[in-house]
């Protein structure tokens, strides 16, 4: 009785008009016809696509820095922040000569997100101290088997020649912070 909308069921004999059901059927038909002239709730995908917000939380991306080196250092903060425990990683040490590939002396040799477990809450993005992981406005594509939803670095790391712009996702404070080139974080 929280909403006061519950009705007490009364078991009384139906009268003649109720028993022939015609008024009830007509009422139903009127509702159906009304809906024909309403705006449609669906779109004809894939011919038309719905507008997706810039800050939509969709498929993840592992960013590279300006020089093309991977930003992720496998610190594990995203994995510990993840409420669905979808993220796993293995760290490795950067060798001499790989400075262009990885930004810090440690990097993720394996980085996997299970897209079936992921609830797209964006806590990994929030936890990341290196601006490495972002959610994007891309939708995770469908597939036939479960294994293919475990996204590895091959799918997550952005290609060097096809960068994904995430500046719209960053707050003003972050944008301001990034102006200071003297901070070691921005170098």
């Amino acid at each position: 009785m929280l909403t006061n909308r519950s009705k007490v069921v009364v078991k009384k004999e139906m009268n003649f008009w109720e028993r022939i059901y015609l008024p009830a059927i007509l009422g139903g038909i009127i509702i159906t016809i009304k809906h024909l002239f309403r705006r449609k709730a669906t779109v004809r995908y894939p011919e038309t696509k719905r507008y997706i917000s810039d800050i939509w939380r969709g498929e993840h991306v592992l960013k590279r820095d300006e020089h093309g080196a991977e930003r992720c250092t496998a610190c594990g903060l995203c994995a510990v922040a993840c409420p669905a425990e979808a993220i796993t990683m293995t760290a490795a040490e950067r060798k001499k000569g790989e400075e262009g590939l990885y930004r810090e002396e440690k990097y993720a040799s394996v980085y996997e997100i299970n897209m079936l477990r992921c609830i797209f809450c964006g806590l990994c993005e929030e936890a990341c101290p290196k601006e490495a992981i972002f959610l994007t406005n891309r939708i995770v594509t469908t597939d036939y088997d479960r294994e293919s939803f475990i996204y590895g670095k091959d799918k997550l790391v952005e290609p060097v020649d096809n960068r994904i712009d995430v500046t719209v996702r960053q707050t003003q404070a972050v944008q301001e912070f990034k102006q200071h080139k003297s901070f070691s974080h921005n170098r």
């Binding site: 250092t73 610190c75 903060l77 810090e104 440690k106 101290p129 290196k130 974080h185």
Partner: peptide, 8 residues
């Protein structure tokens, strides 16, 4: 002088 390299 302590570096901020806790992630590493």
């Amino acid at each position: 002088n302590h570096p901020l390299d806790c992630p590493i």
